[in-house]
Design a protein around this nucleic acid. Structure first.
Lengths: 202, 202, 202, 202
DNA sequence: AATGAATGAGAGTTCATTCAT
DNA sequence: TATGAATGAACTCTCATTCAT
């Protein structure tokens, strides 16, 4: 009788945390941490201001959780997209596409990650060190299988990957108002990286 | 004609502004826009709080001017370093070195530019569009002289340059506590870009 | 006749109230009225926050009842201790001892009475007028039986008794961390009062 | 030309601290610490709410300063009144009168001291330990000059004095709405104490 | 130009109380 | 009766900005 949409999964749909996190993501995607007030988040989530503190200890705590959940989502999306691929070409192509996809579909989500630098520097470091570790590991693998010039420092290459993702992906997605990063942009980025990182004799 | 009190000696006229700008740069390099108060800036500059408004209309106005001055300085430093060089190799090497140099010697200055995104998005766009235009112009030149693959979109390449500068330069400079970006990092970055952007047949 | 659900077994009926009163006494003995929240009281009593209002109309109501119950207990303890004694010496000795005893064994209980002054002044007056009346009645009896100087105003003497009890008893008990008020303190207090209140010719 | 009332002594009459302290005393004398808000204090002092924080770091800081200033004033008033007197009779009479006088003229001031126990217990202890020390010193002097039974513990006697002052003085002054403690009350108190503390053979 | 006390709107947060279950 | 999430008024405190001097 009760339609499924009215039977919230206990602890998930009715969960105030989830509701607030979603509302907050929408707001932080557009406005700065400072100008997004707890009151606005609650209004967006359809609840009274005080209720906020039943779910989070502070605005800051919510922000931290939000950034961590974005981190998880981005990494999971990339991992899923890459799957079992091992050739550098496939890994880069699938990985970047997944990354750009997330950025395009959740416009502003990356803005939040960037703002983390100013809201909580240690949170930001945590975020990027985690990503950098994963990239560097991948690069080392490519070097062993002869797909990347072994003379390059894997850590620096990881940073370059991030720079491209961070800037190209983000800037493109946002300065173009949330439209998907077009295939030719991805192709160009791919071409540069493929050639640039290749072993000299190839 | 102009009464002396209204025509301050140049270099003394700008004193208040310059003093405040310098004080503000020091503070914004370490703390967020929100936590740096007008009172703190004035204390750092050695003047009374109210005096601030004799020189700037608002905290925001000072911030805008600060970011613009950083933009000017960075571009000037790069232009000076590049000088008359025309070979892509020289331009990239000299340009990046100058950029990394500024970042290393004025640690935190880039932090301010990044924070601009959250303080005043349009200012941030202005900053990057200006940079991107210059880069894209350079890339087009290189394509005409056969130094860069003409199939690549100059705008995308400009964004990649920026991504590398933004992330590699900044991250390196800051996560390593202001030490200079070492030469081998620059060399690695150069190698990747040189190869990656080259014409296929080269 | 009365359905079982409506006629709770005595001692079970009061369960909720009793539970909350006990929990509250423990908390109010250590923290101020303001910092003891309804939620804390309920946590201490092992029930949900909302249940509080099944037993009390408000935090204030509970506080009033708590203070009144302390009043009852103190007076009862003193009355029991004094018993049938009529000599001033016995009455004072036994009464004070009983009073100090209660204070020592329920440390912090007197704190609650004192705080009543700031939570509800009229409750505090009620408390002390009740006590003062009893003391003054006793003093008048002693005056009639020639045990207290008839020139003294019984009301003032009652206040002095209270001052001594209030301050000596309370301060001693609390500044000495709940240790019993030692016998020699009581003896000294007794000596002073005995002499001080005696008829001149005694 | 400028009337003296318009030329505030620098740092005193125009002093926001003084203004706020006076306003706060009036309010705290009537309402509890909690219900006296910073906004009310500022309204009473005729200034904007935010100004408060130009003079005090917090409501708590103001309260501490207020209690300490009361402590100073009470002790000074008593010291001045006692002057060079050395006979116990004079010292007690003059001291108590001065104490009762202050209480009567600044109704509610003692309420503030009492509330300190709940606002800041350590402040309250500080207050009473300071007073107790002075009293005990006096008592020891009286014992040496044979004016007080040397068998009594000076500390306990000090507490009794305080109990009488605390309770008689305060209660009387307040339950009778600020009227002076009448001479006969003081006389009665004196009589009891004089006899009570005397050396047995006297 | 300079001072610094004053302003007051607005932020985050707490908590007694309510209410649907 | 019992639950505990939701409510929202009220509080303390901050800070960009103003203004009399």
């Amino acid at each position: 009788m009760t339609p499924p949409t009215e039977r919230p999964t206990p602890g998930q749909d009715a969960d105030g945390r989830e509701l607030l996190l979603t509302a907050a993501e929408r707001l932080f995607a557009e406005e700065s941490y400072t100008s997004v007030t707890v009151a606005k988040i609650c209004a967006q989530a359809g609840m009274a201001t005080g209720t906020f503190y039943a779910w989070f200890e502070s605005k800051h705590e919510l922000f931290v959780e939000l950034v961590r959940s974005i981190n998880r989502d981005v990494r999971r999306a990339m991992a899923v997209a890459i799957g079992e691929a091992t050739s550098r070409n496939d890994v880069e192509r699938l990985g970047f596409r997944a990354f750009f996809e997330v950025m395009s579909h959740r416009p502003g989500v990356y803005r939040i990650v960037r703002e983390a630098e100013f809201v909580d520097p240690s949170l930001f470091r945590e975020y990027y060190e985690q990503i950098a570790r994963g990239y560097a590991r991948g690069v080392r693998g490519f070097q062993q299988s002869g797909q990347v010039d072994p003379a390059l420092d894997p850590e620096i290459v990881a940073f370059m990957y991030m720079g491209v993702g961070y800037f190209v992906g983000m800037r493109w997605a946002e300065w173009t108002q949330g439209r998907s990063v077009p295939d030719d942009v991805q192709a160009d980025v791919m071409k540069v990286l493929t050639r640039g990182l290749a072993r000299p004799e190839d």
